[in-house]
Every structure is written in C-alpha cells, then in structure tokens.
Design a protein around this nucleic acid. Structure first.
Length: 797
DNA sequence: AGCACGCCGACT
DNA sequence: GTCGGCGTGCTC
C-alpha cells in the first residue's frame, strides 16, 4: 500500500500539516510528489484539493498513532505531471521560516489561479414533493447557483432528509483548442466521384488536389472558403481528418513587433555586463541614473544566458509592465519570451504558465508573482526598479520577490541583478557592506540627452495665485511648451490626498460608514466612493448634517485638476491617466500611444506616469504636489518621495531637446526634495541612513509589524496590550516594540486596527514569540480577533 | 473552513 | 419529555 502525504486546502493553524492518504492501487506507479489531488476531508468527507508533498511508509504512519484502516483514499489525481517541482516545494519550506503564512497558501501562490480547484455542493431531491417544488425538471442543483434564501431552505431540507448533498471539487483549468483539418488521404480524394451538380464539392475537390498530403488548415478557414457541409463531406469520406489542436491564448503579442538587435554598450555598461556574466554567486546592485541604459545591460545578460543554454527571469513592477516595455524583450528574444502579469485573464496566465512548465520559454518577463515560475536551469534573475514596494505582496503570503529571487538564484547558481536609479536603503546598505556587488552607471546612454534642470517652486509663496493647484510659473511654462508644440507631463501625487466634499456651513465631510475615512469624489460616475472597502453612495445635494445646500468640492484629484487646467487653458489637449481611466484592459496602452503620437499636449496622471515613459517630445515635467507622500506616517516617507521625484524628473529630455522639471512643494527645504532636485542619490543615502540609525529603523534594524483588528475598539486595545506582553516575555531588552497605536486609518471594513511594530537586530526567540501570538488567536474567545503578522512591512497605512 | 457532537432553554 | 440553539474540537 502506498501512502501519500498531502497538504489540504484548508488555511488554518490546525490543518497546516500533511495528512496521510492511501493511493489507489491502480495509480501507485503514476502518482508523484507535486501533483494535485482531490481528497475527502473531515467528517463530511467533503472533497478538497491537496498537494502531494511526499510519501510515507506504513510503519511511519502507524508510529504517528494512525491506524492504517482509518486512512482515507485519494479520490482523484488531477495531474499527469507534477505542477510543483522539487525546487518549488523546497522553496515553500524555506518561505515558511520567514513568511508567516500557511503552507497551502504558499503553494497556491506559486501556481496560476486556474490550477486551484473550486468547490461546490450538488443537491439531489430524495422526496418527490421537494423535487417538484424546488427542482422543477432538474435532477441536480448546484448549491452555489442558489440565492441565500434558497440555500437556507436547502440546508433545512437536507437536515430533514429530503435532499442529499454531494461535495464536488473541480479543477478549473481548460485548454483552449481550435479545430483543424488535415489532408490525410490524397488517394481517396482522387477516387471520389462527385455529382456534376455539386459545384461546391467539385470546387473543393479541385482545390484539394493541388495541395500536398499532410497539409493542415484551420477548420474555420476552409469553412469560409467553401461551406460547413462541404468540408464535412470530405471529412466523412476520410479525405480530411478533423482534430483539436491546442492554441495559446496569448500569441497575439508576438505580432507586429520588429526584431531588434543588440546595441553597443558604453564603457560603464560593458563593465557591468562583464561583471554579471562572470558572476561569482554574489548578487549585484546595478545602480544607474535614469536613462543610463540599464535595460540594454539586462537584455545582453539575458542573451548571454540563453546562449549558454539557460533561462532567465526578468521582474518589473506591475505598472511598468506595459506592452511598450514587454515588446523590447519580444523584439530581442522573440518567441522565447513568456509574459506574466495581472492584466492577463486566468486562462491566459495558465497558458503562459504551461508554456514555461513545458520548457518552451527561455525568458519570463513578469511582475512579482512571476518569481515563482517553473523555469528550469535559471541562469539569471533580474529585478528592475528593485526599490518598488509592489515587490512585497500585501496580502497572505506576504513574501518579498527579492527574497524569493535570492533563494532561487542560490538554488540554480544564477546571477541575481537588482537594478535601480534609486535603490532601497536596505539594498544599498548591503552593497556597502559587500553583501552585494555594486555596479554603477553614471552616464546617460544617449549622449545628446542632458540630465534635466530641476526647479523647485515654493508653493507657500503662491498661495494667492488664482489657481488652487498651479503656481503662475508652472502655468506660464506649460503654456509656453504647448505653444511650441512640445509635450508636457504633469504628475499629481495623489496618495493619501483625494478629492472629497465638505459643507461650507458646518464643515461636515461625508465618511464611509465602515471605515474612518472620508469618501472620495468621482465625478465621472457622480458618486462618493470609499477607496478602502469599495462602499459607494450618491452625492448629497444638501448637507446631511445641517441641511445647508452649500456642499462644495475640495482637494485635487486628477479629475479636478484636469478640469481646472482645461479651464485655464481651453486650447490645450489634455490626457488623463490614473487608476480610473486605465481600469479597462488595454486602456493604459491606448492612452500612452495616443500621447506618443502627439494627439495630446499634456499628459496628466498619478504615479504610474513616473515609470519608464520615454517620449522624445516631452520637454517639461511638472510635479503638482511633491509633498503628499512626505507627510505620511511612515518611516519610508522621505525615501518614497525622493525615489518618486527622481524618477519623474527622469522623464524629461530623453532625446535631443533639453528638458525641464518643475516641482511644486510646500517643503522646498526638505532634504528629500532638495536632493531630488540635484539628482544626488549618494547624499540622500547618507542623510537618510543617519536618520534610520538614530531612530533604529531598517536597514539598521529588522522590523515585524502586527496589526490587531476587532469590531470593538476597547477589545482591540485590550488584546493589543495582551499581545504586547506576550511578545515582551520572549524578546530581549535589545528589541524595541512600538505601540500599540491606532493605525493611521483606524477603522476599515467595520474593524478597528491597532498596530505593534517590533524592531530588532538579533532575537533568537522571535519566532517563538510570534507563534505564541498565533496560538492566542486560536483561542475561542478570540474568534473575532484578527492578527496580521508582516515581516519587513513596506506600508504603514 | 465546515461539520458533528453535546450540553442548555422554549416548546409539544 | 423533545427540538434545536450554537459553543468546542477535529479533520489522515
């Protein structure tokens, strides 16, 4: 008897371990580690998806106190080939040491969504009365298709024994196919006698006679040429054979892309390239100013890796993963490229994944989760814009792609390259210590392109200008550029600063009923939306508080600024790009290509325009509000501001025309803004490191954040202190715990949130402490309590 | 997560 | 006396 160890799809503390199941005899030689199965689980034997993570001997099972006859049998093996390989399973084990998440969540994160089964219950009527009342003509009803009231009714009927329930688990993957016909019997074709009246058939016979045996057509193509019946006739006579052929759902991005050849590297690029390809297992930090040609270095490193018969992973931040960006890789590597990003449908992602798993892709370009792709024989892993916080997943499992990359690079002996113009302090500090090898690109690759001049506009002096959002200098400059037929990019850093409505008489601001946050005004849909829980309501005409009709709109969201700018410059053509205008698939690309084609003068957008845009005609970049990120309660606020401003400044003057950058700020003396003005990363690094050291923040200290949530504020506070003392019992006095304090947004989704922040350098018992916290949350009295543990948090909002 | 077992209150 | 409320513990 073969016994498999299986991790089941129940994310809870008590089930976070392998369960033993008997492998059906017929499948004994076919099952393998890493395959998905369906197994009966729990008293109800509901079917669950699980992953085989190992096999066990009978003696071992019995030693664990299980009787063999009590073991259940695997209901279904879902795969012919394992979906997780040995490396991925080992990686999951390693991840569990640092990422506080259940094994099953980690395993599921490594696979495309379609490979995770969906569950349902199928109901059958046992009572004729029930059958006619509820089932109409159907033999079975799917539980999930019913509304809540009917679901309750069915549960009651089930208890009364009038309805039976069967659990089903279903793997969702589908392989897209198309029908093709192939010419398989030429002799038969010639032998056919066709009536002279059947013109279409005769025509097709003649057509086929001139085609070689074995030729393949799309079924639809032939049907269009002749007709369905005629094609069917030849299939029926054995001349043609109809078959299904697998098609990839994402082939179209290979079309219309011209191939591209390597560019010559300058001396700095060359040196970096040489260092990377002769890698001695130390990771690299490639620190290069915007426009210094980091991407060309990446491309050539990847080309080198492919020539050596290996593969590569290229990670870029989600918002940079535009067709414009991916086409550079496709242009260089053609069909060797697979793209993985969230814009793809589940089916498309699955197809890309299979292409990779089958070894048909040599280069994977993707966002965070692409770090898990089942590439074999990896020669290089490159993380561009390494400082981007989107590399850290902000829901379970809270992994950082950089950490995973480190593990995978180690496993494969691959070169790891972290690239950025403004590296995160953590990474830069490691380079300083010699943990990473620092490679610098200090010159723009395009010699003609000058580093743009940056001017700061002190908004304190412009408060009386006629516009709320723009200083006169900025307006004049924009007008000048527009009249010269040059283009302008304006960035509105909207974070934590959206438009809202307020009553002029009593100061009332509508807030979300579930969250402690004012609602954001959306003029396009004429609604007030909560950006945290998604609550939507209409815009009141009179104040709900004092019935005054003096409701006014405040703040400067992109919509508001667009309207204002349009009013001030009626002749300018403005394109707006933010989450609202780019929601639809391909919208992002459409906006950019229309701007690139000169169909607009001004591109107004949020942070997403700071990344990688490269338009030669853009000669002015304006930042409308540089300070909003600066005032956030986050120790990385300065770092974020500096990175963002440096990046957006790099958008100007990419070609022959020289560029200008104007930054509007209320804090012109702040070091993050002043040093962004002079493009002085090195000075910023030194200054910021001094602060971090003084305040004991990363990279000098490690951090773990705990967020405690409960619907009752008092309980939240009480439990937070309980957890605090639990932690202190394990931690040395060298560790510092901040809090509990209310989160900046104290209530969302009807829950109060308090946070604790542990700062430490060496704590042997940290894991024990956190496990104790988890145990605490498992107590029944804490059922309603939610505790989130985040190692090295990136966001404190 | 979801289900059964089991121990207490409101009814036939 | 029973039906059913949900608190507690377990799932190979």
């Amino acid at each position: 008897m073969k016994i498999a160890k299986i991790i089941v799809d129940v994310p809870s503390m008590q089930t976070d371990k392998p369960f033993s199941y008997v492998v059906p005899e017929a499948l004994e030689t076919l099952v393998a580690i890493g395959m998905r199965v369906h197994v009966p689980f729990g008293r109800g034997n509901r079917l669950m998806q699980g992953f085989i993570v190992g096999f066990e001997s009978q003696e071992l099972v019995e030693n664990q106190g299980n009787r063999l006859q009590d073991l259940k049998v695997i209901a279904e093996v879902l795969d012919f080939e394992p979906v997780l390989n040995a490396e991925q399973l080992a990686l999951a084990d390693k991840m569990r040491e640092t990422v506080f998440a259940y094994k099953i969540s980690i395993l599921k994160a490594m696979l495309p969504n379609l490979l995770n089964s969906s569950y349902d219950k199928v109901l059958t009527a046992l009572d004729p009365q029930v059958a006619s009342d509820y089932f109409e003509n159907a033999d079975e009803i799917h539980f999930s298709s019913l509304d809540e009231v009917m679901q309750a009714t069915m549960m009651k009927l089930q208890r009364e024994g009038k309805v039976s329930v069967r659990y089903v688990a279903q793997s969702k993957e589908t392989i897209k196919t198309k029908k093709v016909v192939s010419l398989t019997n030429h002799a038969q074709l010639l032998a056919l006698t066709i009536s002279a009246r059947a013109k279409k058939k005769l025509a097709m016979q003649t057509f086929l006679q001139h085609e070689p045996e074995g030729k393949v057509w799309d079924n639809t193509e032939l049907v269009a040429l002749f007709s369905r019946d005629v094609v069917k006739f030849f299939i029926g006579n054995g001349v043609l054979t109809l078959s299904d052929v697998e098609v990839s759902r994402s082939q179209d991005y290979f079309e219309n892309i011209e191939t591209d050849t390597q560019k010559t590297l300058n001396a700095e690029q060359k040196a970096a390239y040489e260092a990377i390809i002769t890698s001695q297992d130390k990771p690299f930090l490639l620190e290069g100013v915007t426009g210094s040609g980091k991407t060309e270095v990446y491309l050539q490193v990847i080309a080198h890796v492919i020539d050596a018969g290996k593969t590569a992973i290229m990670l870029v931040p989600e918002i940079s993963l535009t067709p414009m960006m991916t086409s550079r890789f496709i242009a260089r590597f053609g069909e060797n490229v697979a793209i993985m990003h969230s814009g793809l449908s589940d089916g498309e992602k699955y197809d890309e994944w299979r292409k990779i798993a089958a070894g048909k892709a040599k280069v994977v370009v993707g966002a965070r989760s692409a770090i898990f792709v089942p590439l074999a024989n990896i020669g290089a892993i490159i993380i561009d814009e390494e400082h981007e916080t989107s590399y850290k997943q902000d829901s379970n499992p809270r992994y950082h792609a950089r950490d995973i990359a480190l593990l995978r690079a180690q496993y494969h002996g691959a070169a790891l390259v972290l690239g950025s113009a403004t590296p995160s302090l953590e990474t830069r500090a490691r380079a300083q210590q010699g943990v990473y090898q620092l490679l610098r690109l200090t010159q723009r690759a395009n010699q003609a392109a000058q580093i743009p001049e940056v001017r700061l506009l002190d908004m304190r002096k412009h408060l009386n200008d006629k516009s709320a959002s723009f200083s006169q200098v900025m307006l004049d400059k924009i007008a000048e550029k527009v009249s010269k037929k040059e283009q302008v990019v304006l960035m509105l850093n909207r974070r934590g600063y959206s438009s809202f409505i307020m009553c002029r008489d009593c100061g009332f601001v509508p807030e979300c009923p579930n969250c402690d946050i004012s609602l954001t005004l959306h003029m396009d849909t004429k609604t007030l939306n909560c950006h945290y829980c998604g609550h939507t309501q209409g815009i009141p005409y009179t104040c709900p508080n004092c019935q005054s009709n003096k409701i006014r709109y405040y703040g400067s969201g992109t919509q508001k600024v667009e309207e204002e700018l349009q009013e001030l410059m009626p002749e300018a053509r403005i394109l707006r790009m933010d989450v609202d205008t780019t929601k639809k698939k391909g919208a992002h690309e459409r906006i950019l290509s229309s701007f690139g084609a000169g169909q607009a003068d001004i591109l107004l957008g949020t942070q997403m325009i700071a990344k990688g845009l490269d338009f030669p005609n853009v000669t002015l970049v304006g930042v409308i509000n540089a300070d909003t990120a600066l005032n956030l309660p986050d120790f990385r606020a300065s770092e974020r501001t500096f990175q963002l401003l440096t990046q957006v400044a790099g958008r100007a003057g990419r070609a022959e025309k020289s560029g200008e950058v104007l930054i509007q700020t209320f804090n012109p003396d702040h070091y993050a803004i002043k040093l962004a003005q002079t493009h002085d990363y090195e000075q910023f690094y030194q200054t910021e490191m001094a602060f971090r050291r003084k305040l004991a923040y990363p990279p000098y200290y490690f951090t773990v954040q705990l967020v405690i949530s409960h619907k009752n504020e008092e309980i939240t506070v009480k439990k937070s202190y309980e957890i605090l003392s639990l932690l202190q019992a394990h931690l040395t006095d060298k560790a510092r715990v901040l809090g509990p304090i209310a989160k900046p947004i104290a209530r969302t989704h009807n829950l109060y949130h308090y946070q604790l922040l542990i700062k430490y350098r060496f704590e042997d018992h940290l894991a024990d402490a956190l496990n104790d916290v988890l145990d605490l949350t498992q107590l029944r009295e804490n059922k309603e309590l939610r505790v989130m543990i985040d190692s090295e948090p990136q966001n404190f909002m």
